[in-house]
Amino acid sequence: MERVTRLSAEEAVVIFAASNGCPTNQAVTTLFSSLGVYAAVHELDKDPCGRELEHELACASREPIPVVFIGGKLVGSTNTIMSLHLSGKLVPLLKDAGAM
């Protein structure tokens, strides 16, 4: 989990995803973009250590990719992010992390 922890702390919002144009990847990145939030995206299938990262993520969470970290903390997958947004809890979380 060492590398995931390091990478997830480099930016306020970090997404670990696949680069295959998956609609869930698109949804979460579009949401952050529409909120004016920069999200660092690590494409696991393009990273030489992608399989290792994917294994670390699987050990840390049962969430499917994309997996989102905010403020260095694991928040969850697209469903979790969308639920937080719809409940009005995402923006305060982003502000607390310094993303907004």
Rank of each mutant, 00 (worst) to 15 (best):
L31H: 09
V14C: 10
E2P: 00
H55Y: 11
S8D: 11
G88C: 11
S87A: 13
G36F: 06
S77H: 11
A9T: 14
K46T: 08
G88T: 13
N79S: 15
F32D: 02
L53R: 04
E63G: 06
A18I: 05
V67P: 00
L74H: 10
E11F: 09
V37L: 04
S87G: 05
N20T: 15
P48F: 07
T30V: 00
S87I: 02
L57Y: 06
A60K: 13
G21T: 01
L93D: 09
D45A: 09
R6Q: 14
H85Y: 15
M82V: 15
I70N: 06
L74R: 07
L93P: 03
L35D: 02
K95I: 14
V41I: 11
P48N: 12
V91P: 01
I70W: 03
A17V: 03
V37R: 01
R6M: 08
N79V: 12
D47Y: 05
S87M: 03
G50W: 04
V75N: 06
E43F: 08
S87Y: 02
V14Q: 08
C22V: 02
S61M: 03
S34K: 14
L84R: 14
L35P: 08
V91L: 08
L53M: 12
E10G: 04
V75K: 09
P48Y: 10
R3F: 00
V75C: 05
A60C: 12
F69H: 06
G21I: 02
I81Y: 04
H85V: 00
G72F: 10
L93H: 08
